[in-house]
């Protein structure tokens, strides 16, 4: 199973990579939205995306809006928002997340909570249909 960590803070990115690799994931990294978009386009097979919201360049919400408008990008993709500022989510943003069934994990996170969420999403991707 593949996972992609989209996170501007290198320390967190690397920690997440280590956590996920320990659980046997192939981990891809992007430090902002447009790089993530490249990966989404280039990668085949199921992919769980852990997405930070506040990033330089393309931010997480813009990325999700782009993805939501393109059915090819949502195919076999699951998103998890990992954010330190859930209060900054406006009602339209919350609406977008709900419509795409995207869970939120608040930083600083408990690894167990985070991994539970990832496993759940990965499992859903593996169920055919």
């Amino acid at each position: 199973m593949q996972a992609c960590v989209v996170e501007d803070d290198a320390a967190i990115r690397q920690t997440l990579r280590a956590i996920l690799e320990l659980e046997g994931y192939d981990v891809l990294e992007a430090s902002e939205g447009s790089a993530a978009l490249e990966i989404l386009r280039a990668t085949e097979g199921p992919l769980v995306v852990l997405l930070d919201l506040l990033m330089p360049g393309m931010d997480g919400i813009t990325l999700l809006q782009t993805v939501a408008a393109d059915p090819e990008l949502t195919e076999s993709r699951a998103f998890i928002v990992v954010t330190a500022a859930p209060q900054m989510l406006t009602p339209p943003m919350t609406g977008l997340l709900n419509s795409m069934s995207i869970p939120i994990v608040v930083k600083p996170f408990d690894i167990d909570v985070l991994l539970d969420t990832v496993f759940r999403k990965a499992k859903a991707l593996q169920v055919p249909g």
């Binding site: 920690t15 997440l16 330190a84 500022a85 209060q87 996170f109």
Partner: peptide, 21 residues
């Protein structure tokens, strides 16, 4: 406040995640 929270929690996140790892 949003940015402050984000900025304060970002190092905390990596510390916390690192310790848990």
């Amino acid at each position: 406040l949003g940015i402050a929270g984000h900025e304060l929690r970002t190092p905390l996140t990596s510390i916390s995640a690192g310790i848990q790892l």
